[in-house]
């Protein structure tokens, strides 16, 4: 299953890069992300809850950053499984950042996701929609967060953001 998404963030490319490579800021933007743990400089572990109608699942996912060319390119792999290994998920993703002027960045990513096991039996069409909606939610959350922080650099919302960060990192 291929998923691709492009969205714009009103922030300089370096800042977007810093945020998008930091699990502490990315994790809270991932819909359903329950917790995460940094394993090494290039890998982390997360628990993500995914609901598909009546089916609710928790995936334990390990993400490895496989290639980074700051501030424009990041490749990663993710593999995870549902409790009881009823389903397994693997994803290879590529993320590209493109500066759109000094204070604007276009983020685009493409993932090849493979889901096998019980959730693999779920209708592919509906699965793609689900993935797309997760992607869209992520984009909104990420943009909001980065833009809020960018604005706070101007001295408005600094405390709020750091509080969030503390919470997410805990």
């Amino acid at each position: 299953m291929q998923i691709a998404e492009t969205f714009a963030v009103a922030a300089p490319i370096e800042r977007v890069w810093r945020f998008i490579t930091d699990p502490a800021t990315v994790a809270p933007c991932v819909p359903g992300c329950q917790s995460y743990e940094v394993l090494t400089a290039t890998s982390y572990k997360a628990t993500i809850q995914i609901a598909l109608g009546p089916i609710k699942t928790n995936f334990n996912v390990i993400v490895d950053l496989t290639k980074a060319e700051p501030p424009t390119y990041l490749a990663s792999t993710a593999r995870g499984e549902e409790g009881g290994k009823a389903s397994t998920l693997t994803a290879k993703s590529e993320l590209r950042l493109l500066a759109n002027g000094p204070g604007a960045t276009t983020v685009s990513y493409a993932s090849e996701v493979a889901l096998v096991g019980r959730l693999g039996k779920f209708g592919l069409g509906m699965m793609k929609k689900k993935a797309k909606s997760i992607g869209e939610e992520f984009a909104v959350a990420f943009r909001t967060r980065v833009e809020a922080e960018t604005a706070s650099q101007g001295g408005t919302a600094g405390e709020v953001l750091s509080a969030d960060n503390a919470q997410a990192g805990a």
């Binding site: 009546p54 089916i55 009823a86 019980r118 959730l119 039996k121 779920f122």
Partner: peptide, 8 residues
């Protein structure tokens, strides 16, 4: 049907 498919 969903139980048989081990979905639920």
């Amino acid at each position: 049907a969903m139980m048989n498919a081990n979905l639920l």
